[in-house]
Design a protein around this nucleic acid. Structure first.
Length: 215
DNA sequence: TAGGCCATCTGGTCCT
DNA sequence: AGGACCAGATGGCCTA
């Protein structure tokens, strides 16, 4: 089934640093600047300074000075290593912050009660998976009741042809239950009783899916 | 106190 | 060479 026009664009996840999520772009900018939220260790954070936009120039310079140049002293070498490591750590931290921002954005569009505890990462992913599946079913049902088409055809083909989830997850339609511990919506929702959202009933009982479940 | 979740560090690999 | 991505390790915090 074709992705719902009103939803599809918003879910366009692109590779690398594009920001399909509200506020993600700003996050990207601020993550580094603002101190890491972590209450734990905050390693000497800077590592910027060097390595600006003169990469090409410095490379040329180095080359002119004699190709590989003379071997650096152990001290200089370890200094350089540490500096690189530090920069890599900063980038990695930033990357994870971006990932978390995206996850937060995802939490923001999932139906949960305000007093619900924040979903964990894995719960968020599983719930989203579940939610998308349920919405898809809702659309399907709506389509059929609208146009009085033939009885619900097994939607497996369409679903499995989609980009959402692995075919394995969807293949056995009518019950997105799949491998335990995977992105199984049912499993994920049953795992934690506190996860009672408006969408839950529909998700747990796909057959009984009703649009009102999402209102 | 054990177990779950999380943030961070780290080294390896792949890509540009 | 440097950046992005990944997975493993480690340690802190929180809750049952």
């Amino acid at each position: 089934m074709a992705p719902h026009p009103s939803c599809a664009p918003a879910v366009q996840v692109t590779h690398k640093n594009e920001q399909p999520f509200p506020g993600a772009a700003e996050d990207k900018v601020t993550c580094v600047a603002s101190a890491p939220p972590s209450p734990t260790r905050v390693p000497g954070n800077s590592a910027e300074a060097e390595g600006g936009g003169h990469r090409g120039a410095s490379r040329k310079l180095r080359a002119r000075r004699g190709g590989r140049s003379r071997p650096k002293s152990e001290l200089a070498l370890s200094k350089q290593r540490r500096s690189r490591r530090k920069k890599a750590n900063d980038r990695e931290r930033n990357r994870m912050h971006n990932l978390n921002s995206a996850l937060d954005a995802l939490r923001g569009v999932l139906p949960t009660f305000p007093d619900d505890a924040k979903l964990t990462k894995i719960e968020t992913l599983r719930f989203a998976h579940n939610y998308i599946w349920a919405l898809t079913q809702t659309l399907r049902i709506a389509d059929h009741s609208l146009y009085g088409l033939e009885p619900l055809a097994p939607p497996c083909e369409e679903l499995s042809s989609q980009d959402v989830g692995s075919p394995g997850d969807w293949g056995s339609l009518n019950s997105p239950v799949s491998q335990a511990g995977s992105l199984s919506p049912v499993a994920s929702l049953e795992e934690r009783p506190r996860l009672q959202t408006p969408a839950s009933p529909a998700c747990l009982h796909p057959g009984a899916l009703a649009f009102s479940d999402f209102l």
